[in-house]
Design a protein around this nucleic acid. Structure first.
Lengths: 167, 167
DNA sequence: GAAGATTGAATGCTCAATCTTA
DNA sequence: TAAGATTGAGCATTCAATCTTC
């Protein structure tokens, strides 16, 4: 239990910083991407995951799990992408219930055009301000949070047995 | 410039992890806070900043800068809080253009009741999964991102001059 | 006219209900 | 009946226009 009298705490300093960075950067990156590549962040996210998938193709529900969007929202965004000719929606031949979203040639082209804009934005606004160990700590730590894993046991380093676990 | 052929990159791994953690945790913490304290995250955020301010009072625009909400949104949220009796809205006696939001006794009470719920949620879902050095790296690094500061010069540590700067 | 704040209209997003196939 | 997906209605959020005071 928390101290019921306390209203804030630096137990939550890292979380507060994460919230503020998200609030500051997401609208900025979204605006830059729209202006320079005519594409909102949600589109980019979907196109990127399709690009990374085998045969550039995913079931809607699998897409929903990978992407930073709700499953319902994915339906709407894919609608927009189909209208724009960047994605194809087809029924899964193996299972008539599910739909497959496939990246089109035009979609891959638009993604390639948008990628440098987004990646450079992330560099300028985010990565550039972090030391290399900080980037590693953020990536490792936040992925552990996502997985819900406990913190690992402590490690010791020595010349003859680098990174060995204690106990 | 980025490699125009690349579409993803682990230059953005830390950013991607931040986006995913935000997308996973914010709705969860919001739901817990609503259920256990009858209060959405936006309310908590505003009440917390008022509580931290001198005399528990802030101009609307100052509140908008501190809080993780747009300035427009703050007007609506304060409307709700005034209706709920948790905040008072008055005209600034020093400047008739600006409005002051003040935390009421009831508002402070509701905040104290909600705080353990939120803080425990942050612990369980976030902090608990991070090592202490990771928490420090996240806090320091993300606050540097927020400030837009460059990475600091390297430091050396020795018994007689701990943490001294090189160069 | 500019600063501070609010509001109406339009957009974005989510929840629950629905539809279809397995 | 359950899994997969979409849709309509209702809420949340933002943008631009407005109002008031300096």
């Amino acid at each position: 239990m928390s101290d019921p009298g306390a209203v804030s705490s630096d137990r939550s300093a890292a979380w507060a910083a994460l919230l503020r960075v998200h609030a500051a950067l997401v609208p900025r990156l979204d605006r830059e991407l729209r202006q320079a590549a005519g594409m909102p962040l949600a589109w980019y996210d979907v196109l990127l995951e399709l690009h990374a998938a085998p045969e550039a193709r995913l079931r809607m529900s699998d897409l929903g799990e990978r992407v930073v969007l709700s499953r319902t929202r994915v339906s709407r965004v894919v609608d927009e992408l189909v209208d724009a000719g960047l994605v194809l929606r087809e029924t899964n031949p193996r299972d008539g219930r599910s739909a497959l979203a496939t990246l089109t040639k035009a979609g891959a082209r638009r993604l390639r055009a948008a990628a440098p804009v987004y990646l450079d934005g992330i560099d300028r606004h985010f990565t550039q301000h972090l030391t290399d160990p900080e980037q590693k700590a953020i990536t490792r730590g936040l992925n552990r949070v996502l997985a819900g894993d406990p913190i690992p046991p402590p490690t010791v380093r020595s010349p003859d047995s680098p990174g060995q676990r204690v106990r």
